[in-house]
């Protein structure tokens, strides 16, 4: 019985894999995370979920989270709270274009961390949140 659980669990956590360039970016983030904390092992979906859903006083001095624009249901459309424009779902399982172009992913993480956390994300935070999004 134990053996079955052990095999199912990893499968469900890492259901979708990254494409090669994105995996390379993830690996770079891992090196950086390890450099700043030697006890670092791997990114975590659970920590990523907290980064995505927790509410902070953002750049505009108002309470905001990643989910404010992208919705708590990553498989659904979101809405940019600053402009009212509809955003396509973030979940790669329903929007296969997500997390496929490193340049774009980097750009939006840079902008969006500033919106919510009023600073850049750390390598660990970025990896965690990418694992979380990719698990959807």
């Amino acid at each position: 019985m134990k053996i079955i659980i052990a095999t199912i669990l990893p499968l469900s956590l890492f259901a979708a894999s990254f494409n090669a360039p994105m995996q390379k970016y993830i690996d770079e983030l891992k090196v950086q995370a390890k450099n700043s904390d030697s006890s670092f092992v791997d990114f975590s979906v659970k920590r990523g979920e907290k980064i995505f859903t927790s509410v902070h006083v953002g750049k505009r001095g108002k309470k905001i989270s990643c989910a404010s624009c992208h919705s708590l249901n990553l498989k659904a459309n979101g809405k940019n709270i600053h402009t009212n424009k509809v955003l396509k779902p973030l979940a790669p399982s329903v929007n296969s274009a997500r997390l496929t172009v490193v340049k774009d992913t980097k750009k939006w993480l840079r902008r969006n961390f500033k919106d919510v956390y009023v600073r850049a994300g750390t390598a660990k935070e970025k990896g965690d949140v990418l694992y979380f999004i990719n698990s959807k």
Binding site: R60, H82, K103, K107, R110, R111, K114, D115
Partner: peptide
């Protein structure tokens, strides 16, 4: 306008 829209 309150956002970071910077580009390379």
């Amino acid at each position: 306008f309150g956002d970071d829209a910077s580009l390379d």
